[in-house]
Design a protein around this nucleic acid. Structure first.
Length: 443
RNA sequence: GGAGAGGUGGCAGAGUGGUCGAAUGCACCGCACUCGAAAUGCGGCGUGGGGGUGACUCCACCGUGAGUUCGAAUCUCACCCUCUCCGCCA
């Protein structure tokens, strides 16, 4: 969410930046018109309140001196304000809500180095700071070659033989659910444990087990509300509701909401392995086969809370943390710098990691790493107190990234490590989590 | 779920109708002392929003929301949360 004062001081920059965003017609003039009205109301209200306070103080003094006549006189005078103050307060509340509503549906401004574009075709491959295709290739596994036609994940023997069961899941829960069994279930678990251990042991993240059900306020903080309500599942609760988290970004980021951290606590790096729940309301008919797009999936999420000065560096660092997962698993992938048309609502810049799926013969998103600036911090009221002379609190910056989507990573392992006989080799880093197994689904 | 206690500034903790945005302590910042540090002394130090070129000034905020009152941190009601005890329970 934007600061109206900043908009007022930077109308041209604001309008130019917003015009890069798809489908946004709001301009600074629309917002400043509301703000002008707001300020008028505040000025009038403050004048009335000031008068009331002054008279009330005089009444107190008059009463203290037992001057009842004067007190009565003053009370009559203040009585005339009785209606204007509550009315003014109501007006102020209304116009402030109007401004908040107008601001809360506006997406964040993209950094200058985000490419322009209308959809994913405008995304630009990224090889890291000072990187090149050559330096990237040294770190990443090459695309695997097969002596046979590689299958899609749900066709690979070990999955197709009943360990990835969509029929039973449909009986239990309908479409877009899956039941994993046996060694495929174990492989899924191994992947999650591996990622979590990597981020906690080697990347300095604090492991968190957050609630999976959250309040509307938390969803507002991380931009799911008010615009993306349709993507969520809700559970009735008391007179209200709780939402099933669509990503652990919601509880992890909101852990700092409505608080003032000290600078020494930053950067705060949090990670969690949680199920995620998405209604996929807008994706009817897309990716209906297999477990690529599910209502429920596991994901390891990373969240960083930083100072404004360090958030851009932290973004690169977080990207590296996510890449390390795929590098250690020996999975081929590429990194895309998302263009303005593909950029998420709250992001100033996003890198997508796309893993190679030989069965599909294409790259698919497996991680998304975003820097949000103070956009979410404003919505959450999350600040920190800088060390040193400046004591006035500032908004923190927030970042989030998947590290990575476990369900999709399972797909990637099944497709990339599949053997002609339908078995699947276990990547070396996962073997400790698989009781030493080097392969699953063999005879 | 039942009974009781309580929610006040970064933290702890006073404050039961007016001069309280709020004592005090800790933390923090500046200065002094010191070779330096500690200790000590002095001073400063909440958040948000208006107005003013500025010095400055006004308004709101004591869990949240209503209410009583000329005036509410303080009184009333509802709700939320925390703690203690009991019950139930993975």
């Amino acid at each position: 969410m934007f600061d109206i004062k900043w908009i007022r001081a930077n109308t041209e920059a604001f309008d130019a930046a917003l015009s890069r965003r798809k489908g946004i017609v709001t301009r600074s003039a629309d917002l400043l018109a509301i703000d002008d009205r707001r300020r008028d109301i505040i000025v009038r209200l403050n004048e009335a309140q000031e008068k009331r306070n002054a008279l009330s103080k005089q009444i107190g003094q008059a009463k203290a001196q037992k001057d009842e006549a004067k007190a009565g006189e003053l009370m009559a005078e203040v009585a005339r304000l009785k209606d204007t103050i509550p009315a003014g307060e109501a007006e102020e509340r209304a116009v402030e809500l109007e401004l908040r509503n107008a601001l809360s549906v506006l997406p964040n401004i993209a950094f200058d180095d985000v490419p322009d574009g209308t959809d994913e075709a405008g995304n630009v491959e990224y090889f890291g700071r000072n990187g090149s295709p050559e330096t990237a290739a040294k770190l990443r596994a090459p695309r695997p070659s097969f002596a046979f036609a590689p299958k899609e994940h749900y066709e690979v023997g070990v999955a197709a033989n009943g360990n990835m069961d969509f029929e039973i899941a449909a009986k239990l829960s309908g479409s877009r659910f899956v039941v994993l069994k046996g060694q495929v279930a174990r492989l899924e678990r191994a992947l999650g444990q591996f990622m979590l251990d990597l981020h906690t042991n080697e990347h300095g993240y604090l492991e968190v087990q957050p609630p999976l059900l959250v309040k509307d306020d938390a969803l507002f903080g991380t931009n799911q509300l008010p615009k993306f309500e349709d993507d969520l599942f809700f559970a009735p609760h008391g007179d209200g509701r709780l939402a099933l988290i669509p990503t652990a970004e919601v509880p992890l980021t909101n852990m700092v909401r409505e608080s003032i951290l000290s600078e020494e606590e930053l950067p705060l790096r949090l990670t969690a392995l949680t199920p995620c729940f998405r209604s996929e309301a807008g994706s009817a008919g897309r990716d209906t086969r297999g477990m690529l797009r599910q209502h429920q999936f596991n994901k390891v999420e990373m969240v960083s809370i930083t100072t404004p000065e360090t958030s851009v560096d932290e973004h690169e660092r977080m990207l590296t943390c996510a890449e390390t997962v795929l590098q250690k698993l020996g999975l081929h992938y590429r990194v895309m710098n998302l263009c303005t048309g593909d950029l998420g609502f709250g992001a100033k810049k996003t890198y997508d990691l796309e893993v190679w799926l030989p069965g599909q013969d294409t790259y698919r998103e497996i991680s998304s790493v975003s820097v949000c600036g103070d956009f979410q911090a404003r919505r959450m009221d999350a600040r920190y107190r800088p060390t040193g002379e400046k004591v006035s609190p500032r908004f923190v910056h927030t970042l989030n990234g998947s590290g990575t989507a476990v369900g999709r990573c399972l797909i990637a392992v099944l497709e990339n490590y599949q053997q002609e006989d339908g078995s699947v080799l276990v990547p070396e880093v996962l073997r400790p989590y698989m009781g030493g197994l080097t392969s699953i689904g063999g005879r």
